[in-house]
Write a protein that binds this DNA or RNA. Structure first.
Length: 586
DNA sequence: CTCCGGTGACTGTAGGAGTG
DNA sequence: CACTCCTACAGTCACCGGAG
């Protein structure tokens, strides 16, 4: 994982990127030189890759999904959409003739470039039936042909009226498709009552009914109290399951569309333009709110970004390959039936309900408090920065990261320094330190510390290399050069043994240069306090000291940094004293 | 009763368009 | 180029209703 600060005009956004993703787009820079400009521009506009991303192992801990009933969960995204359509239509119409259902679904998916087979529909119906969301029966009104009918599950009694309705539907369908139908067929359809009475007589005769076959479910039992209760209960269950399925489909659709959008758009986006996302399951505003609320769940956000990354990688490849193999049919980059994509999507959907629900109340309250505190921290930090940059992590953890680095950088074994480090670190919670440590491990900033604890935790060679290679911004370098000139101008004073007061407004470049000299033992820095003590600047009237020129007004304090080794004599500068100008600080 | 997800009202902010 | 205005997104808070 790679955290990167992005500047978006007036704002700054922190995002996580996988290294691999970044490299892909870097490679893309090479490719773009050889390829068409327009496609390159698309890649350029996409930015470096997709944002925020969870550790890759997140996918390997596949948990059992509780989001949908298992039979439905195993359907593809298309399958779930079709199941949803079937259930919605079943809600409205109570029954559907299977041939009609098939034609209707095929018709709805016209232009998608795929042909759905009847087996696919059978599979979906089977799954729905297993979940008690529909009933599939075969009916015979006397003609040779069996008519397959999908029923709303709470229809347990085939009333004469319903048979009439089914027959009427069949008649109108046949008429539409084949023109006039045979008189025998018509007679059977128009008067199914007679046929049913006949069947009833056959049943009392303990013979197997011939005209109204049962499929997996009993659809012909006479009404009874227990049957009514079951019917009612099943109706309730149906409603609940339908609602659940509907919500799940919306959730899935929302995530899919969101991820498609972001994968294609890349990292250089300010915000989600919901109005541009097609096929949303609800209004853009509703989707925005829903997604915002889902993203409060850290696990969900991470899994979502993981999915974005995965899809983004495929999108980049897709563009690159299209550049090489123009005109060839390529696999879809956003194919949610792809094994890996599907797994990542399921992971996102699992976290949709997971996380918060799984933790105990106390733990939940702690988390809530922590979340609030973190948000407060972030708010304070953002306010201080004067921007509205959004930092998606705890400042406490960020601080802990820096402290850990410092502790690890320190090679001191002095007792007091170790206890000071321990004291500072003790201000952080175990969770924060663990998170900080995980972060450092993830970025390969530290090595060791694994196994039985024999190997100590150390800053990695890669980290140390990177430190020495990191470039200073030009403005800092200029500042250091200016400071260096300032010191050179006063070299004679220093040789004479005079102390030079250093102003309070040292910047990064000044400090770097100063402490480089201190580190090489060319200079000595000692703190001083004003002779009249520390207090309100207005009451002291130390105009001279504010200019930093009247060293005699300062008294040395106890804490004076002295080199432990002898000052190098071959250098002409014996020492410089850092004077702390309290008056100008107050 | 608590917990939790969903939702509306509200606020803050970025960025684009228009203007001088 | 700087400013204002407008739009859209994002986040917060409070409330509601269902589930347990």
């Amino acid at each position: 994982m790679f955290r990167r600060r992005e500047k978006h005009k007036k704002s700054e956004v922190y995002r996580y990127w996988t290294k691999r993703n970044l490299e892909i787009v870097k490679k893309r820079g090479l490719l773009s030189a050889e390829t068409e400009k327009s496609k390159t521009e698309i890649l350029e506009r996409r930015g470096k890759t997709i944002s925020d991303h969870a550790p890759s192992e997140s996918l390997s801990h596949s948990k059992k999904s509780f989001f949908l009933p298992k039979p439905l969960m195993s359907l593809t995204a298309d399958g779930i959409r079709r199941a949803k359509r079937i259930l919605e239509r079943l809600q409205r119409e109570k029954f559907i003739l299977k041939p009609n259902l098939f034609r209707w679904l095929v018709n709805l998916e016209k232009g998608k470039g795929m042909t759905m087979g009847t087996k696919t529909v059978d599979e979906i119906l089977n799954r729905l039936q297993q979940e008690g969301l529909c009933r599939c029966i075969e009916m015979n009104f006397g003609n040779k042909q069996l008519i397959k009918v999908v029923l709303h599950p709470h229809i347990v009694n085939m009333s004469v009226e319903l048979c009439n309705e089914i027959a009427e539907k069949m008649r109108s369908t046949e008429k539409q498709r084949n023109g006039p139908i045979s008189s025998e067929k018509l007679e059977n359809m128009i008067n199914p009552k007679r046929k049913l009475e006949q069947e009833s007589a056959e049943r009392t005769d303990t013979r197997e009914p011939t005209s109204l076959k049962r499929s997996k479910h009993d659809i012909t039992g006479s009404p009874s109290k227990s049957r009514s209760t079951r019917s009612f209960d099943e109706a309730e269950k149906f409603e609940a399951n339908t609602l659940k399925l509907k919500v799940a489909c919306q959730g899935r659709q929302l995530v899919m569309q969101y991820v498609r959008y972001h994968a294609a758009k890349g990292a250089n986006f300010r915000a989600t333009e919901w109005s541009l996302i097609p096929d949303l399951p609800a209004t853009p505003r509703r989707c925005l709110k829903r997604m915002a609320s889902l993203k409060l769940n850290f696990n969900f956000r991470e899994a979502l970004m993981q999915l974005c990354n995965m899809l983004s990688e495929r999108f980049v490849k897709h563009l690159e390959e299209n550049q090489k193999f123009t005109g060839m049919e390529r696999p879809r980059w956003d194919d949610f039936n792809d094994k890996n994509i599907k797994a990542a999507l399921e992971m996102v959907l699992q976290h949709k309900q997971g996380g918060k629900c799984k933790i105990s109340r106390d733990r939940y309250m702690d988390t809530q408090k922590k979340t609030r505190d973190e948000k407060k921290d972030i708010k304070i930090r953002n306010e201080r920065k004067g921007t509205s940059g959004r930092v998606y992590e705890s400042v406490a953890i960020a601080n802990a990261v820096e402290l850990l680095k410092l502790v690890l950088l320190s090679t001191s074994t002095a007792k007091d320094e170790l206890s000071l480090s321990a004291k500072i670190l003790s201000r952080y919670t175990e969770d924060e330190l663990l998170a900080a440590y995980s972060y450092l491990r993830e970025k390969k900033f530290v090595s060791g510390g694994d196994g039985d604890g024999d190997s100590p935790i150390l800053l990695s060679q890669a980290f140390l290399r990177n430190i020495s290679r990191s470039k200073f911004p030009a403005v800092r370098v200029e500042r250091a050069a200016k400071f260096s000139h300032w010191l050179q101008d006063r070299e004679m004073d220093l040789i004479k043994g005079e102390e030079l007061p250093i102003g309070p407004d040292l910047h990064c470049g000044d400090l770097l240069h100063l402490f480089a000299l201190v580190s090489s033992q060319e200079l000595l820095v000692s703190p001083r306090l004003p002779s009249e003590g520390v207090g309100d600047a207005s009451s002291t009237g130390r105009s001279g000291s504010e200019k930093g020129t009247e060293i005699q007004n300062f008294l040395p304090v106890k804490l004076i940094l002295r080199p432990t080794r002898r000052v190098r004599v071959n250098k002409s500068v014996p020492g410089i004293f850092k004077v702390v100008d309290r008056a100008s600080h107050a």
